[in-house]
Design a protein around this nucleic acid. Structure first.
Length: 429
RNA sequence: GGAGACGUGGCCGAGCCAGGUUGAAGGCGCUUCCCUGCUAAGGAAGUAACGUCGUAAGGCGUUCGUGGGUUCAAAUCCCACCGUCUCCGCCA
């Protein structure tokens, strides 16, 4: 969430920034107004408590000295104070809860450098690599859901029978390829990132920490009986890993990576891009993540983007990098780069990574701070995340891109160490 | 799931049964200074976070797992929840 002090001191600037997303900013005015009332009640409560603390201490002293009568007299004088305090305290608590609720629903301020615009059409293409529409051969123009069926490596129909639409099942070499991609995604970042395998089902507080709740409750799977949520991305448990902690500056930047399954209801996108693996409710992903100081954040953003892009480049996939327009940046982000792979069979760009710099927006929610060296007090860390490898769409890109004239699929060189001798998925006989 | 024990500051650990100068003894760690050829040892002082008021110095408030309650007063008493540990049961 945003810093209430920042909103208090310069509401117009905050509104202007948030408005670039196309978001309604009227709640910010409301917050400012409620905040003033909060502080009035706060002062009142503090004064009442100060007085009551003082009197209590005095009573204690009187009892100790055996001056029971005086003590009783003082006690009698405290009547009514309690009710008075309670009224202010209740009003205060109520206002604070309201403010928090409002605050949780205000998105992060986009970076001044983020491109203007409200939709994905306004995203700026930073670079395109390996994309040549004229060089795409006919045998590559087969969508992966057809290839998957032909080769017996992807079985959507049976997955749908078990779990409903937008679920997939990988089989045989297809499942093996999936596993290879996960290992590949992790291993190539092992030089700097600590591998984590977190829980994939988490408490409500954990989801709030990253900004996925309350705003996007409809997009997440909820296990009502135990009040647990299936994570939409490893970003959720990774952020919460150090929730409430004060980190040593020496430990920053902290680099973490995790392979997890991710669950998304995709509530707003029913019927869109539903063929094959374009959009599924359950998928595997390797996530790259970092906590760092504000000073380190910009460089870390570039590092994660570079690592994610290199993984795609080394797989030999045509791709492009987008600088997202304000309106397309997810709630917690201040700036986001997307990586899209071109899938020649499906004939479209598929988002395979979203690399976001969240400033202290998530850290504030999850209360993650660090002690700056040579400075008093604490500061909130910055958090950054990016998909190191989103498996299904990369899988789709590979299967379509590497399809040979005979219908077999050659395996990218960089995956060979993970495929136990498999160099191609053979064509059906 | 059953029975019991327990959750205190960066860490360890008193205090809780008998509520009152306890924001919390003592120790470790850390910081600064002294001593010192170097290191070790030793001596002195300091060492939580958050909120709020204040230009500041500083004042006040909150926090002893979390949330309620009792009381003039709660780390201490009561209730609920969360978590940890031990034993039993079950189990990949």
């Amino acid at each position: 969430m945003l810093d209430i002090k920042l909103i208090r001191n310069d509401p117009e600037a905050v509104k202007a920034a948030v408005a670039r997303r196309g978001e309604d900013t009227s709640s910010i005015d409301e917050i400012v107004e409620l905040d003033a009332r909060v502080r009035a009640h706060m002062t009142a409560v503090d004064q009442i408590r100060e007085e009551s603390n003082r009197v209590s201490k005095e009573i204690g002293e009187l009892y100790r000295n055996g001056e029971t009568e005086k003590a009783e007299a003082l006690k009698a004088g405290t009547e009514g104070q309690k009710e008075n305090e309670r009224q202010h305290a209740d009003a205060l608590a109520h206002l604070q809860a309201t403010i928090r609720e409002l605050l949780l629903n205000v998105s992060n301020m986009p970076s001044p450098e983020a491109p203007d615009g409200l939709t994905e059409d306004d995203n700026v293409v930073v670079r395109v690599e390996g994309y040549d529409p004229d060089a795409i051969a006919d045998h590559q123009r087969v969508p992966h859901w057809e290839i998957g069926e032909q080769l017996g490596i992807l079985d959507v129909d049976r997955a749908v029978r078990m779990s409903g639409s937008m679920f997939a099942m990988y089989r045989g070499h297809g499942a093996h390829l999936l596993r290879a991609l996960i290992s590949y995604g992790l291993d190539r970042n092992r030089d700097a990132f600590e591998e984590i395998r977190p829980p994939t089902v988490v408490k409500t507080d954990t989801m709030i920490g990253t900004g996925h709740l309350p705003k996007f409750a409809d997009d997440a799977y909820h296990l009502e009986r135990d009040d647990l949520w299936a994570i939409p991305t490893a970003e959720v448990p990774l952020t919460s890993m150090v929730a409430g902690e004060i980190l040593d500056q020496a430990d920053l930047p902290m680099r973490l990576m995790a392979h997890t399954t991710c669950y998304r209801r995709e509530a707003g996108s029913a019927g869109r891009d539903t063929r094959g693996l374009l959009r599924v409710h359950e998928f595997d992903k390797v996530e790259l993540y970092s906590f760092c100081t504000p000073e380190q954040a910009q460089a870390m953003h570039m590092e994660i983007l570079e690592r994610a892009e290199n993984a795609i480049r080394d797989l030999g996939l045509a791709h492009r990098v987008l600088d997202l327009a304000c309106g397309d940046i997810s709630g917690a982000g201040t700036r986001t780069y997307d990586i899209e792979v071109f899938a020649p069979g499906a004939d479209r760009w598929l988002e395979v990574s979203s690399v976001s710099w969240c400033t202290d927006y998530q850290a504030r929610r999850a209360n993650i701070r660090y002690r700056p060296e040579g400075e008093k007090g604490t500061r909130f860390v910055h958090s950054l995340n990016g998909s190191g490898l989103a498996v299904p769409r990369v899988w789709a890109g590979i299967v379509e891109t590497y399809r040979q004239p005979d219908g077999s699929i050659r395996m990218p060189d960089v995956l060979l160490p993970y495929l136990g001798g498999l160099t191609e998925i053979p064509a059906p006989v």
